[in-house]
Design a protein around this nucleic acid. Structure first.
Lengths: 154, 154
DNA sequence: GTTGAAAGTAGAAAGTT
DNA sequence: AACTTTCTACTTTCAAC
């Protein structure tokens, strides 16, 4: 279904989706058209979900990134789905994952400074429905971000 | 430096960087050329770091995602930089952050199944230099991923 | 910031192996 | 069935305004 050439194309597109199809074709040994066709299939099949610009948070004034572990008051379907719906709706929540382990959710947020993070913490995170405990961890340095999926199954 | 229009452009590009500049220009009330010039500046200034295809891990066979907390044997500069260099070099490590809190690093990895994760755990993560403790948490469900930075400072 | 023209790219329709 | 060539419409890019 997804062969070696597709994987090469995907690796190239993950690192730069603005190179021309002709260039990608060259790199994988295919004509632009054949390459274009494969990319179309990968898009249609949902392997490629979107093409996005990736920004530098610090240059935008987001100097602090946090991973926040959120524990809820319970784990009933109603509680989980109310929390998820609210988290999805908040643009400040950059990522949100339901986790195994001690806390229920792991969310990622960014803030310009501690003052703004305090606001975020009180008005946004703590205000999400059914939150019972919050534990924040600050990212001091991001060593690697945006690592694409490796070309072969890990 | 970055004004309201730039923020709108960035929001649009974060959700879809393949729409034409003319479309983006229309959406923000600018000619294609003016829009193009602004985007060029945002790229040059490093606000836009790259344009990337975002893939669906499950469709690629990566059915499990983990956040792994890694504690090192110490926090000397030599230990930290050796670890970081090795983590950067491993394609299986999708993200790696130096954190405040109990563990030293938070890394994100993906695997097709538990068997492969066990290999990843033993051969990759535990094999990184100076690792003393590893604690894995499995992502059961990703509620929100790829949330772009919000248009206004959080 | 706008307009307009030149170069380049994507997308589709043909034909080829 | 998948690739290649060819062609047209669109898009980017860069003048000059």
């Amino acid at each position: 279904m997804i062969d070696e050439i597709d994987r090469k194309i995907l690796t190239l597109l993950q690192s730069n989706c603005r190179q021309s199809i002709a260039e990608i074709g060259d790199a994988v040994g295919l004509s632009a058209s054949a390459c274009h066709r494969r990319i179309g299939i990968l898009e249609k099949d949902g392997v490629i979900e979107r093409y996005a610009a990736r920004l530098n948070g610090e240059k935008l004034g987001f100097n602090m990134t946090f991973y926040v572990e959120v524990t809820l008051e319970g784990q009933s379907e109603a509680i989980l789905s109310a929390f998820e719906k609210a988290a999805l709706a908040r643009p400040e929540v950059l990522e949100c994952h339901l986790m195994t382990g001690i806390a229920d959710y792991l969310i990622k947020v960014a803030a310009p400074d501690t003052k703004e993070y305090e606001r975020l913490y009180r008005r946004v995170i703590a205000a999400l429905p059914h939150v019972s405990r919050i534990q924040s961890a600050l990212v001091m340095k991001t060593v690697k971000r945006w690592g694409g999926y490796p070309p072969r199954k890990a």
